[in-house]
Design a binder for these strands. Structure first.
Lengths: 118, 118, 118, 118
DNA sequence: GTGGTCTAGACCACA
DNA sequence: GTGGTCTAGACCACA
């Protein structure tokens, strides 16, 4: 389910966070479904449980999952998941648009990139 | 001219790189003009010369400045500066568009962000 | 494994870069194997860790190794290593051929050097 | 006659050396002709006379020019000039061929680069 | 334990 | 005076 890329510059825990978000937003992990336990995922990925723990803690802080003491970690509601993710993307997008405006790129220049990519 | 943000998680040398790029692309530092010397900028920002050195070395590697031993560091040509910066922005933009597509945001959704921001 | 030459005018970090490339391309350090840690190599060569750090950073930038925070530095795939090195050599070769042409040395003159050396 | 390139990584005095060698080997400066004086060349290139002085000293050390006290600097004999330059190129060429051999490039691989460039 | 960033300061090459 | 390299050593993020 999760493939770690050690050549990726991002830290492992961050890769796990991003991959989990994707799995949830795309419905591979359904809303309110239980996530793999810290220990089992650590074994599966052959990494230290601390690293999984850190990823889960951050996902909870951001609202993507909720933890139930003694039971485990669970995916948030679909609507919530999508809202969170869309907000993230909008934020990054606006940041770039500001950079673009600063150096005088017009909205049309931007649009062209949007339309012509690939 | 440059304000360092010590709360920012990005390393200092990276903040300097970004700020210098902006100053050059926006023409505050004109093309082929000499940049502040490693030592003088270090004093001005109250940081170690090695950190400035690192920022300048990276700026040169990326083509934004050229360095002449015994003389100093100089801004590249305007055309070059702009090309480099536009490429950077396009690259970041395409990256985000891919993320957006992954979670099913349509190009129209994107366009709306572009048009309605602020 | 690595011998530094202090009489050599080239900086130490560059000597390390070249030597490491050779060790990897020749298979002494196998693909994806872990390189000596920054600290241990610094001790072994009796030089400052920063100098090793710089060499490794440059090797990574050029694609010869990849670095994983918290784990270490690792050699790239064999195919990649060889491609990178062959390109380097071709580039240097073409540069010399141009110098040779400038002073009127024919391709045959060059061939003779290639065939008769040693 | 001489164009300095400040964006070139090589120091100025080295650029002068190389350009002078070329002018002499190609006959633009005929054998035994007088070279421009240190002072006049310094003015022409708008650089410090010390830099010219250093270039001339190195050219003399390598045998490309000879100086006559009170008169100036003069180009060596044509035969000598060419021999020196050819030796330089051969030396660099052999150095590369060794690097190529080290990583297992065959002479044929080399030949192909020689034949197919441009 | 591992890499990455930074400081304080020295020394060299070059102009 | 200017950039480039290096040492000695500290502290942080990550696994």
């Amino acid at each position: 389910m999760i493939n770690l890329d050690y050549k990726d510059k991002r830290p492992i825990y961050e890769q796990i966070i991003d991959k989990m978000k994707e799995l949830m937003v795309m419905g591979v992990i359904p809303e309110n479904a239980q996530l793999p336990s810290v220990r089992s995922l650590a074994v599966e990925l052959s990494i230290n449980p601390n690293t999984i723990q850190r990823a889960y803690a951050e996902l909870e802080r951001q609202g993507y999952i909720y933890s139930v003491k003694g039971k485990g970690n669970f995916a948030a509601d679909n609507e919530r998941l999508r809202d969170l993710k869309v907000d993230e993307i909008k934020e990054r997008l606006i940041e770039i648009l500001d950079s673009a405006k600063k150096i005088g790129m017009s909205d049309d220049d931007i649009m062209n990139v949007v339309k012509n990519r690939r």
